[in-house]
């Protein structure tokens, strides 16, 4: 239930266009919950929705999606190595 509510909150602030809230929350949720694929989906949605070419002649950059995927990968690596996650399986 907590995960569901957190996902809805993440979704609303992401689509509302508040990256100063969305990016930290996304990183926290990736570390807090196991296999939090929703963060990746929401980040890609933000890129598709608001994304624009960032240099002349095209240049579509998936900024939030790439950051979310990097955070997800780092979280997966750290979760295997940190003792906290082996004790508190979420």
């Amino acid at each position: 239930m907590n995960r569901f509510l957190a996902d809805i909150f993440l979704f609303i602030i992401a689509l509302g266009g508040y990256p100063f809230l969305f990016v930290p929350l996304m990183v926290v949720l990736v570390f807090r919950f196991d296999r939090h694929y929703e963060s990746l989906v929401v980040a890609i949605v933000v890129d598709v929705l608001y994304g624009a070419p960032l240099w002349p002649g095209g240049g579509m950059v998936y900024l939030f999606g790439t950051v979310a995927a990097a955070a997800f990968v780092v979280a997966q690596i750290l979760k295997k190595r940190l003792r906290y996650y082996s004790k508190h399986a979420i």
Partner: peptide, 12 residues
């Protein structure tokens, strides 16, 4: 929508 704090300056 006008994401004022986004790196993308876009309007929907």
């Amino acid at each position: 929508a006008k994401p004022s704090t986004m790196p993308y300056d876009t309007f929907i």
